[in-house]
Design a protein around this nucleic acid. Structure first.
Lengths: 153, 153
DNA sequence: TAGTAAATAGGAATAATTCCTAAATAAAAA
DNA sequence: TTTTTATTTAGGAATTATTCCTATTTACTA
């Protein structure tokens, strides 16, 4: 199934309790198509060519609405700027201090490790909604990809 | 040894290659004394009563300098606002979605679990400087503390 | 105690985000 | 269909957060 198919996007909006307005459809598509962890401004730039009447304040409001509806998440950043993530599956983040790029990484073993840990250690007076491992550091060669390696076969 | 002792603070600055100016001493002390993960504004408010001539731009610049010197760290936030952490020991963060409070938590076993994991899985083309587990969720009773529980004895 | 490089105050400039409200629009009702 | 109504949006103003600029001040060095 195609995430950015028109009716699929409409349905996602409606399932989440949001009216399928033109702007929301455009913006949710843009979130799915964006490769990375865009800011509101990034998304605005991505769509405003085709949608010249779209307002930046609408982008902010709609992304906020999407987040409240659980369609996307906010990503924590150290730079003090809001960024968003359309990937709502459990995964982790690698942060490059130099470029401020954020890379996703999945690792089933790691997810289990962490979830097992929190079976033993609960947090009193707190309801956990999401756990992310945040790996900070720096990309070495700017021309090469950052890749997680499996050395243990 | 007292972290906020005058000569101790001076020495820390000098060891980090920074001149021990009045403003830096005041601000580093304030960082050590602040309970939590303050913004630049928080620190400014905390010290400006006793230091009316201190400028907010100095606070921003000095906290940035402290971070570069490794005296403090920036904390990733989802709200899009810079916050700082004077605790440079390995520890993790619990984020309350409602109050935007951030709680530290230490767990030796968890730290080991994670460091063992990254002995097996390295990240190609990336130098890790720091790893943090970021636990998102909501504080249940606002009048009670958030505490990590050890159920496994 | 003077000289020099580094740091600061203070405010202006910029960037990021939110707020406001008249107009437009989607969904429901007629 | 058209009308109604509640929601949503555009657009810009307002606010908040952060950085930049530069004359002045300060900490160290000789």
């Amino acid at each position: 199934m195609d995430l950015v198919n028109l009716t699929a996007v409409k349905n996602r909006l409606i399932e989440s309790g949001l009216k399928a307005t033109h702007q929301r459809i455009v913006l949710l598509k843009a979130m799915y198509l964006f490769d990375g962890h865009p800011s509101a401004e990034n998304i605005f730039e991505a769509v405003s060519g085709d949608n010249p009447a779209l307002s930046l304040s609408t982008v902010y409001r709609v992304l906020e609405d999407f987040e409240k509806a659980g369609l996307i998440n906010k990503v924590a950043t150290r730079k003090g700027i809001q960024r968003f993530d359309s990937n709502t599956n459990p995964h982790n983040h690698i942060y490059c201090t130099n470029t401020h790029d954020i890379y996703d990484f999945y690792d089933e073993e790691l997810n289990e490790l962490i979830s097992d840990f929190f079976k033993k250690r609960s947090i009193r007076n707190f309801r956990i909604t999401d756990i992310k491992l945040q790996v900070n550091g720096e990309k070495l060669n700017p021309d090469q990809k950052v890749l997680i390696n499996n050395n243990h076969k």
